[in-house]
């Protein structure tokens, strides 16, 4: 069975990738990271960010709502302290970058040229920051502009992580494609509000982003929709916690799948997802994922 995936000359040993934000910087569980197709780091910004005040997470039925707020040490410390260790990973390294303006993303891309970095994922979809994040990703023109600007500064695999909050991700995916993106990640967390027993916002950042199995049907819908709207690969993300979920996202058109919230429950969950996906393929006599990819849209 061949599970290898190639996107723009970057070879992923398998289609399972750790999503940004729920796998630290990829160093905490290296044995897991080494056996995945790839790892997307927590978002890196130009300057250090302390993140949002606590509480930063709430549990809801079948999911969680987080408001971490892109806590990270900034580009320089990331390069000095984290990247040298990350370079030893055996899987493909993708650095998630976030900023408020096009220029921020370009500076980040210019600063992240190391050979060990296989690709960059532009974060246009974080719901937990004041400037940047989701406000950029809701506007197709801005998505295209930023993608095009970053495209000029890097030859690396360029992924745009999209939002589905009050915008059609098919439209913003087309914009990312027009801007020169090599792939899009669909979707980031959905807007959420959690109240405490007094009817006041529970999270320190007031609102947050919903993730986990609760959003899976919507994420799957978005992948199916985006996959038929663009010709670049779609990376599926949203509530994948078992092999069956991964299988479904691939059937809906995903080339890779990202595992996020599941890592909070079990840090090695993605390896189990991979094993379960292999089992499904074996049982269903699927030799190549190409045979099932996008089959939701094929006429029988």
């Amino acid at each position: 069975m061949n599970l290898k995936i190639v996107i723009k000359k970057v070879q992923f040993a398998n289609p399972i990738v750790a999503a940004s934000g729920t796998f630290g910087f990829g160093l905490e569980f290296r044995q897991v990271a080494n056996r995945l197709g790839g790892v997307v780091t927590k978002a890196v910004t130009l300057n250090p960010r302390a993140g949002n005040p606590p509480p930063r997470i709430a549990e809801v039925c079948g999911g969680v709502v987080n408001s971490v707020g892109l806590e990270n040490p900034g580009l320089q410390r990331f390069k000095a302290e984290i990247l040298p260790e990350l370079s030893k990973l055996k899987s493909q390294l993708i650095v998630n970058i976030s900023g408020a303006h096009s220029a921020d993303f370009c500076k980040l891309a210019e600063g992240l040229t190391e050979q060990s970095i296989a690709g960059l994922e532009i974060n246009l979809s974080c719901p937990n920051v004041g400037a940047g994040g989701v406000t950029l990703g809701q506007n197709p023109k801005i998505v295209e502009k930023i993608t095009a600007a970053v495209r000029k500064t890097t030859e690396k695999l360029l992924i745009v992580k999209l939002t589905a909050n009050f915008v059609d991700p098919a439209e913003t995916a087309r914009a990312a494609e027009a801007g020169g993106a090599d792939a899009v990640t669909v979707i980031n967390t959905l807007f959420g509000l959690v109240l405490d027993e007094n009817g006041q916002p529970f999270l320190g950042g007031r609102t947050g982003g919903v993730s986990g199995p609760a959003i899976k049907p919507f994420a799957l819908y978005c992948v199916d929709r985006v996959a038929s709207a663009v010709s670049i690969p779609v990376i599926g993300c949203g509530g994948i916690i078992n092999g069956r979920d991964a299988f479904e996202f691939i059937c809906a058109g995903a080339k890779l799948v990202q595992v996020g919230t599941a890592h909070l429950i079990e840090p090695d969950r993605s390896l189990k997802i991979l094993a379960e996906l292999k089992n499904i393929c074996r049982r269903r006599k699927i030799n190549s994922l190409e045979d099932i990819r996008g089959q939701t849209r094929r006429i029988k």
Partner: peptide, 23 residues
């Protein structure tokens, strides 16, 4: 005690601010 996500250090959800303003 703090609300935790992962318990293993990968989700950064259980932040507590130190005196230097870092979590």
């Amino acid at each position: 005690e703090e609300r935790m996500g992962c318990g293993t250090g990968i989700c950064y959800c259980c932040g507590i601010e130190d005196i230097y303003g870092n979590y």
